[in-house]
């Protein structure tokens, strides 16, 4: 089998199991709500449930659609199924995918990149679950025992992650890095809705990337 056959086989398996696990998870996610009703008779009225759905729908409908699309070019098919089941996509899965591909020295967006990203995100899902399970049992005591400065410091972990990963990738493509950052600044200053900022930053940078790519191809062809 050649590489693309192997990769297509891999994708088929991922889509098959991805669908099954997401459907299973959808059903399982209702067990706590069902437990409260059957064991304790606690449940909002149907009217309240409709009201909850209505409120959440208006707040989230754009996120439900825009976010999976925007992050797909980074995390790939397997990463999409894993990230939306295990959550924490921007603060964990996307950085992990980027850094795993860098550490394994594979090209992003290729079959090899996707395999490496799957391994990185998979282990990240497992490690996060282990840490949270441990924390659910001992977390209260541990946090109480830590000096407040330590817990406060974790408020500042995300900017360091974002700065580090952007610097890393912008180094490989300075023009794109400058373009993306400028756009993010301008959109932020204009007070554009965040979902639109995400969409424009990701797909705007992709368009610019394609434009630069084509310009370089032309230069190469002209030189030949």
């Amino acid at each position: 089998m050649n590489k693309s056959d192997i990769y297509n086989d891999f994708l088929k398996g991922i889509i098959f199991w991805g669908r099954i696990t997401l459907i299973l998870a959808l059903v399982m996610s209702f067990i706590p709500a069902a437990y409260l009703y059957f064991m304790h008779g606690i449940m909002p009225t149907w009217g309240q449930i409709v009201a909850i759905m209505g409120k959440l729908f208006t707040i989230l409908i754009v996120s439900w659609i825009v976010e999976p699309i925007a992050y797909f070019p980074i995390v790939g098919t397997s990463g999409t199924y894993m990230s939306w089941l295990a959550g924490n996509i921007s603060n964990m899965r996307v950085p992990v995918s980027a850094i795993a591909q860098q550490a394994a020295e594979v090209q992003e967006g290729t079959p090899e990149g996707d395999i490496i990203s799957t391994l990185g995100i998979g282990v990240s899902v497992l490690i996060n679950l282990i840490i949270l399970a441990f924390a659910a049992v001992f977390g209260v005591q541990i946090i109480a025992a830590l000096p407040p400065a330590i817990t406060q410091a974790f408020n500042y972990i995300l900017p360091a992650v974002f700065g580090a990963v952007l610097a890393n990738f912008a180094l490989r493509n300075l023009k794109l890095g400058a373009f993306a950052l400028a756009m993010a600044f301008i959109l932020g200053k204009l007070g554009t809705p965040t979902w639109l900022q995400l969409l424009v930053c990701v797909f705007g940078t992709i368009c610019m990337g394609v434009v630069f790519f084509n310009m370089e191809e032309k230069k190469k062809n002209a030189a030949q």
Binding site: P73, I74, G109, T110, N173, M183, C201, T205
Partner: peptide, 14 residues
């Protein structure tokens, strides 16, 4: 690869 790298740069800028 351009698509993926550009998406990463765009997302992290955001």
């Amino acid at each position: 690869p351009i698509l993926s790298v550009a998406a990463m740069i765009g997302a992290f800028a955001y």
